[in-house]
């Protein structure tokens, strides 16, 4: 009997160390680095073959030169800061309003019945459709971009959260009530931790959307920012700069997601990803 007990505990210890390995960054970097190097090599080979002229398909060398130029002038950095600022503001606003709204929709049936169709409606509406209004209402600059980012990320966030809240197992609330968590305390100590894994996933999706939208918004309603920089490079027929700015946008997007991914390493949410 003691032996089987020990086996049970060993099993748990093993499960734990596997989980720890995954949490400590079980994903290896070299396969991705290898693919990246391979892609770069193919790009370089295609350009060396001289099938297409430089101004249609720039070579890695010219993009690297453009990158150096853009860095030296400080333009790339300034544009990235502007875009990042707009995303932070627009997405921050969406989170600040979307989390309470999602909790409300999830916990109050009547609110859900009343508002879910509207939330679904706006979620299905491409944020780009709001561009005319964004310019009419807010002109050019930070405000229209922030507005568009908000419209893009608020509704999916509300939808994901209300769904998460509505599917929290009933037994958690029974246990919570038994140990004194009612009303606002239940919301804080039961509902919120129970949906935290899904909340983090929704934040990652939302941040990705926000970063997508900022580029589009700046292309039509900006005088600065990475989106405007893309448009500017096109107008100046600087395809090398265009590619360099596209690469920057992609890299910042990956970095934002990696940063949010760190939240999934929190001990109190691991359970949500290990089933």
């Amino acid at each position: 009997m003691n032996a089987s007990e020990a086996a049970v505990q060993n099993g748990a210890a093993e499960a734990k160390s596997a989980a720890a390995a995954a949490a400590a960054g079980g994903v290896r970097a070299w396969p991705a680095i290898l693919i990246g190097a391979l892609a770069l090599a193919i790009w370089w080979l295609l350009c060396s073959a001289n099938w297409l002229p430089e101004y249609v398909f720039p070579s890695p060398q010219s993009v690297a030169r453009a990158f150096a130029e853009d860095m030296r002038s400080g333009r790339l950095f300034d544009d990235a800061v502007v875009s990042f600022y707009r995303v932070t503001l627009g997405f921050g606003l969406a989170v600040a309003l979307g989390v309470p709204a999602g909790l409300l929709l999830g916990t109050r049936l009547i609110v859900r019945e009343g508002l879910l169709p509207a939330v679904n409606f706006f979620r299905s509406l491409s944020p780009l459709a709001w561009i005319p209004f964004a310019i009419l209402w807010f002109g050019i600059g930070d405000a229209p971009a922030v507005f568009l980012i908000f419209m893009a990320s608020f509704f999916p966030l509300v939808l994901a959260l209300s769904g998460a809240v509505a599917t929290v197992p009933k037994v958690y609330f029974q246990v919570g009530a038994e140990y004194g968590y009612r009303g606002a305390r239940a919301l804080w100590y039961v509902t919120l931790p129970a949906i935290l894994p899904q909340l983090i996933t929704a934040l990652r999706v939302g941040a990705g959307l926000a970063w997508l939208v900022v580029v589009a918004a700046e292309m039509v309603a900006g005088r600065e920012g990475l989106g405007f920089a893309i448009w500017d490079a096109r107008n100046g027929l600087r395809i090398d700069l265009l590619v360099c700015r596209m690469i920057t946008i992609g890299c910042i997007g990956i970095t934002i997601d990696l940063a949010l991914l760190q939240l999934t390493r929190l001990n109190c949410v691991r359970w949500g990803y290990e089933r």
Binding site: P169, V171, Y172, Q174, V175, E178, Y179, V190, P193, A194, L196, C268, V269, W271, G272
Partner: peptide
């Protein structure tokens, strides 16, 4: 009274000690 639930009644976001401490 205290209840042991038919379904798993532990809070998955709390540790063993924190779950017991609730009681």
């Amino acid at each position: 009274t205290r209840m042991v639930y038919q379904q798993d009644g532990l809070f998955p976001w709390l540790t063993t000690a924190e779950n017991i401490a609730l009681g």
